[in-house]
């Protein structure tokens, strides 16, 4: 059960600060750095002793993005419902879970921890796990790829049960905003004027997680570029700011933070996707809690 009684605004502030400075907060052991935790509804789930009432044979884990909390999944006007809980309502023995983590840490370190956490969760789950569904929004999608790589590399058992991975607005080829921040910081730091170099240094204070987003890095440098996890189905959901697909604003900004091509992983080699859906008129954040996306997930995953 949850022991976190802090108000929602404090949790949200911790999530935002963790996104900006998460690696630094963690290095200082600052209590604002969010730990990695699994939730079932509002209750935390201990991966060593998971207690969720009626455990299903399918685990559906929803993973938020940078500076977000699990509350990003909450569908508007539907008390606590999210994509996972809607799938569970369809009676497929699905247990909906959500993840909370420090999104400012390097993605590969969160990926390693998630792989370990999933292994413990599957090993200790009260009934045999037959299928795992991972749904990631934005950075959450990169985290899925990272965890799959480390789970596969270590021969962890949960990878065999992995059935579906859904990447919602994930910047597989990087986010234009993160790329812009990096380019601006690099440019400013090369100028001869000290006041401009300071601006570059301030932009450079961004966390390792944000840095990873500029190129969609999911593993450490020595691990190269991992393929999509074999044996699982992979789906991509993209958003676009304007309702008309051809609108120039879509070409410039995509869903506001991620271009459609990046969400599809167009620059990645050897990807075989089981489904791609683009939703014009739905921006980056609303992709995580939109009825149209929920309908698409139901079609793919049930």
């Amino acid at each position: 059960m949850s022991s976190d009684t802090s108000p929602a605004w404090q949790k949200q502030a911790s999530a935002i600060l963790s996104g900006f400075l998460g690696d630094w907060l963690e290095a200082r052991n600052n209590p604002l750095a969010l730990p990695m935790e699994v939730f079932h509804g509002r209750d935390t789930v201990d991966p060593q002793i998971p207690d969720v009432g009626q455990p299903g044979t399918t685990l559906c884990l929803s993973i938020h993005g940078l500076m977000e909390l699990e509350s990003v999944w909450n569908l508007p006007g539907q008390q606590g419902a999210h994509y996972g809980s809607l799938l569970a309502e369809a009676g497929q023995k699905i247990t909906p879970l959500t993840l909370r983590y420090n999104s400012g840490r390097p993605i590969h370190r969160n990926g390693e921890d998630l792989a370990t956490l999933l292994e413990a969760l599957v090993r200790n789950w009260p009934v045999p796990v037959e299928r795992i569904i991972l749904i990631g929004h934005s950075m959450g999608g990169l985290l899925i790829r990272s965890a799959c790589h480390y789970g596969h590399a270590r021969g962890l058992r949960w990878v065999e049960q992995l059935g579906d991975c859904v990447y919602i607005g994930s910047p597989h080829d990087g986010s234009w905003l993160a790329k812009g921040a990096k380019a601006t910081a690099d440019l400013m730091k090369q100028t001869p004027r000290d006041y401009l170099r300071v601006i570059g240094e301030v932009i450079d204070l961004r966390s390792a997680g944000i840095r990873n987003l500029s190129r969609g890095e999911v593993v450490s440098e020595e691990d190269g570029e991992p393929p999509l996890c074999p044996g699982a189905r992979h789906y991509v959901v993209c958003g676009l700011l304007a309702c008309s697909r051809q609108h120039p604003v879509n070409a410039l900004f995509g869903d506001a933070l991620v271009h459609e091509s990046s969400a599809r992983g167009s620059e990645r080699k050897g990807w075989s996707l089981s489904g791609i859906a683009t939703f014009p008129g739905i921006d980056h954040i609303r992709l995580a809690h939109h009825p149209d996306v929920a309908g698409q997930l139901r079609e793919w995953l049930l």
């Binding site: 802090s6 404090q10 907060l25 600052n30 209590p31 604002l32 006041y195 300071v198 301030v202």
Partner: peptide, 23 residues
């Protein structure tokens, strides 16, 4: 939590003052 905020605020002020000095 508030101790964490104080830590960030103090570090931010410390580093902010040194950056502002340079600017």
């Amino acid at each position: 939590w508030w101790a964490g905020v104080a830590d960030i605020a103090a570090t931010g002020l410390n580093h902010g003052a040194s950056k502002l000095e340079r600017v």
